[in-house]
Design a binder for these strands. Structure first.
Lengths: 142, 142
DNA sequence: ATGTATGCAAATTGTTTGCATCGTC
DNA sequence: GACGATGCAAACAATTTGCATACAT
């Protein structure tokens, strides 16, 4: 149950927090922008301001409930932090996002960081591609 | 010579374009923000507006002279596009950036995209790490 | 009851655009 | 001389912040 997670994180259980967490859980496979979430709330007739959405997301990120990604293009997107790390494939045509993990890549990254005298903390890997579901709009693409 | 590159790209050879390209070449190892470049220009007593810097960078990106990256944190950074692709290691402490290429990772990415039914166009991989040059400010870091 | 969280509007920040003028070809 | 390029200021978009009020504990 989500309110438990909020409390466990040391945050007061408030309606906006619960609602936002719910939306993130319901759209678990999606990667939502702050505006997306705000729009969901409006549709659900919840009277929650956009500023609050940003504030809550930032707090959630701080306590590790949520991950934030900066893909290409202005907005940041947020997803629930399920604990298991993963990278992303993003379809340039339809925007669909797929998650994946590749042990070999993980290992290589670790090795590369070490070879260069770094201690690896994090990484971000995104593949920009075209899924063959898409009606490949313009023949060959970009 | 840089003005040749500009002409070759089909752009008029203007002072702002030449100057900006020069700055990018001089700081070849750095990854500069639009503001960084603007500041360089000011120091060099060149009367070039920030808007022009953005316009020129965007055009340069369009013709493949420059690559744009969205690392963590607001600003985009730009670097000369030397043709050879590479990824980045970014030091969380001092901001230093190292470039690398790993054939194994490149191969795996290609394979992963295919396995998931995608045609890979591009990718962005950044390792966030701590270089052991840095006086590891706060013991264990974040 | 207390102090934190929220809503709203205003402020910031990074980037883009409109328009009159300037410079390159 | 023509037409694209520039400078400046205003416009925008995403996100953050100040402040009076509302709410969880």
């Amino acid at each position: 149950m989500e309110s438990a997670d909020i409390k466990k994180a040391g945050l007061k259980v408030t309606l906006p927090r619960v609602k936002i967490l719910e939306i993130l859980e319901q759209n678990h496979e999606a990667h939502l922008t702050a505006e997306d979430i705000y729009r969901c709330l409006l549709e659900a007739r919840e009277d929650i301001g956009l500023a609050t959405v940003y504030r809550v997301l930032t707090q959630f990120e701080g306590v590790g409930l949520v991950r934030k990604h900066n893909f290409e293009g202005g907005q940041s997107v947020y997803e629930l932090d399920t604990g298991q790390h993963h990278d992303h494939i993003l379809c340039l045509d339809c925007g669909k996002i797929i998650e994946f993990v590749d042990e070999e890549i993980e290992r290589r990254q670790q090795a590369i960081a070490e070879q260069n005298g770094f201690e690896l903390e994090e990484h971000s890997l995104t593949l920009y591609a075209r899924c063959n579901r898409c009606p490949n709009r313009d023949g060959e693409g970009r």
